Amino acid sequence: MGFMTSHTLTVGFDLDMTLIDSRPGIKAAFLALSAETGTFVDADLAITRLGPPLEQELRHWFPEDEIQDTADRYREIYVTHAIEPSLAMAGAADAVAAVRAHGGRAIVVTAKYEPNAKLHLTHLGIEADAVIGSLWAEAKAEALREYGAAVYVGDHTGDVRGARTAGALSVAVATGPCDAAELRAAGADVVLAGLDEFPAWLDAYAAGGAGS
């Protein structure tokens, strides 16, 4: 493991709005949750601020003493309503393939509940070498350090903070709720318009001595 960590390029990817466009699925899950609980949730608003943990969003709509039970129920509903409608982001499969083409490992580090994250990837045919869920912002550094990730790719300022905390290069894609200026201001080392630009960037990065 130590040898692998030090000599194999490992790239981490966020999930929501980085590798997958989960907005259609998350909207469907929130609408189902709202119908079941009788509590209004503005699903169209909720999907504009993806990234942080589910509980953070639920606090906008539910009292604190209901958050944990509601989160558990949402994660159950999610399996039925959210996997099928969610799509891969443009360039997602090619970005993961680019890491493999350089002999590297691609891992997914996400705030999403891990079993549901895995369901998304399986459904879309995106194969990661590891999937680590329930980590947000600075906490993502735990998994990035454990797997020796040199690069972390995400769409949110929280992903930038996670990469920086881990000492990894922060590559940001402006495909989520944070625009390029916000991502740069948060300290992203590289800002791409989307994952379509990632393979060419990775080629240049690797040529500059990715393994050193």
Rank of each mutant, 00 (worst) to 15 (best):
M1F: 14
F3T: 15
F3W: 14
M4N: 10
T5E: 06
T5H: 04
T8A: 09
G12K: 03
F13I: 12
D14S: 04
L15M: 05
D16S: 11
T18L: 00
I20S: 05
I20K: 01
S22G: 02
P24C: 13
K27G: 09
A28G: 10
A32E: 15
S34A: 13
A35M: 03
E36P: 03
T39I: 04
T39Q: 14
D42G: 11
L45A: 15
L50S: 09
P53S: 11
L58A: 15
H60A: 12
W61A: 06
W61R: 10
F62K: 14
E64Q: 13
D65C: 03
D65H: 13
E66I: 07
Q68P: 00
Q68R: 12
A71W: 02
D72M: 03
R73L: 07
R73H: 15
V79H: 14
T80H: 10
H81Q: 12
I83F: 03
S86W: 02
L87K: 14
L87S: 11
A92S: 13
A93F: 04
A98L: 08
A98N: 05
V99K: 12
H102P: 08
G103R: 11
G104W: 04
R105A: 15
I107P: 09
I107V: 15
V108G: 00
A111G: 15
A111Y: 05
N116W: 03
L119A: 15
L119G: 02
L119F: 02
H120V: 01
L121V: 01
I126A: 00
I126H: 06
E127G: 05
A130T: 01
I132C: 07
G133A: 08
S134F: 00
L135R: 08
L135W: 10
W136E: 10
A137W: 01
E138K: 05
E138M: 08
E138S: 09
A139G: 04
A139Y: 01
A139K: 13
K140M: 01
A141Q: 07
E142S: 14
A143S: 06
L144I: 07
L144Q: 00
R145N: 02
R145L: 15
A150F: 07
V151S: 10
Y152G: 10
V153K: 07
V153D: 01
D155M: 11
D155T: 00
T157I: 11
G158R: 09
G158D: 13
V160N: 08
V160E: 12
R161V: 01
R164N: 14
T165H: 04
G167E: 09
G167N: 02
L169S: 05
T175S: 11
C178P: 00
D179G: 06
A181Q: 14
E182H: 10
R184G: 09
R184M: 06
G187T: 07
G187E: 08
G187R: 08
D189L: 08
V190L: 04
V191E: 11
A193C: 00
L195F: 03
E197Q: 11
P199N: 09
A204N: 13
Y205C: 05
A206G: 04
A207G: 11
A207C: 01
G209D: 12
A210W: 13
S212F: 05
